[in-house]
Amino acid sequence: MKVQSGAKTAWIRRAALLLLPLAALAWSLAAGSLELSWSELAALLLQGPGDGIEQTILWRIRLPRALLAALVGAALSLSGTSFQAVLRNPLADPYLLGVSGGAALGAVAAISLGFTAALVPPLAAFIGALTALALVYLVARAHSCSTHTLILSGVMVGSLAAALLLFLLWRAPSDATRQAVFWLAGNLSLATPGWLAWGWIWVGSGFLLLWACAPQLDLLTQGEESAADLGLNVARTRLLVFTLAGALTACAVALAGLVGFVGLVIPHICRLLWGPGHRLLIPLSALFGGCFLMIADAIARSVYAPAEIPVGVVTALLGAPFFLYLLRHKGDGL
């Protein structure tokens, strides 16, 4: 608990919060096949967009991609935070309630039916994710949506989607399979820059609405009965949070496939560092998740450049040890 007290550590934490996004963005812009020194990076940034290869790479490839990583990381982290609070389950992640299964099924169905135009698989994933979530919700509603029913029906819908998915992959030609697998593993290079603005609007409004629900989320962590006794309309709030978190996940999946780990662990890390109150947790986990994915993606692009390794591998390799370290030292915070 030595971290908790002391003006010095508090100051460091605050400074880190300010510098973290800038550092992550800078790193993300500097890393990749084309090696850029910090001074070159600064010069290119001052130059503005242009036709040169360096300028093209920086302004048309790296910057959109860094912003996409930030967006996807923030969306996943936000929805993870919300799902964990609503379900009161530390293992809840954005993909738990069949969302990943639905999204994957949607995308792969589109790919294997031959609709491979850039727009279709993400849209199909988005629709698949929301459909799965709605199905889970409708099934669980028969039992007044107890968290256990929700999780169980989520897992079931997920398995069902996974089975259909395996079937589709089995009968798809190998090119489509590779395309699908690549997409399932999570990849930030696929989204077209045109989507970025829409993504930011979507995730931004999701963030604001969830932030406005911060006290309600706090109450939901106390269990359904206590929350109701404290004056919360539990069913309505839960539906609202579900819809918001589900929409954020669907957006992230549509933009980047299934990027694992961020939504599960970043909320925990933030809770360990800043406590469980959602008024702070919501913005901080969005910030932290975004920065984390920017850095992870920068590493994924540069370790074996020009080849790229799956970003999910990097997020797990970076995040898991850090999380274990935190558990070791502040473990009861969960």
């Binding site: 609070a85 009161r88 530390p90 932030w211 406005a212 911060a214 006290p215 706090d218 109450l219 962590t221 106390q222 269990g223 206590s226 404290l230 004056g231 919360l232 809770r271 406590g275 469980p276 109150g277 008024r279 009861d332 915070g333 969960l334």
Partner: peptide, 27 residues
């Protein structure tokens, strides 16, 4: 009940103010 989220005692007590809440973000 079993507490599962590490709210501080004063934060938990503050939740009792939810029905009288005036501010959107805080209790």
């Amino acid at each position: 009940m079993q507490a599962s989220f590490p709210f501080k005692v004063k934060e938990l007590v503050a939740m009792g103010r939810y029905p009288h809440r005036k501010n959107l973000l805080s209790f």
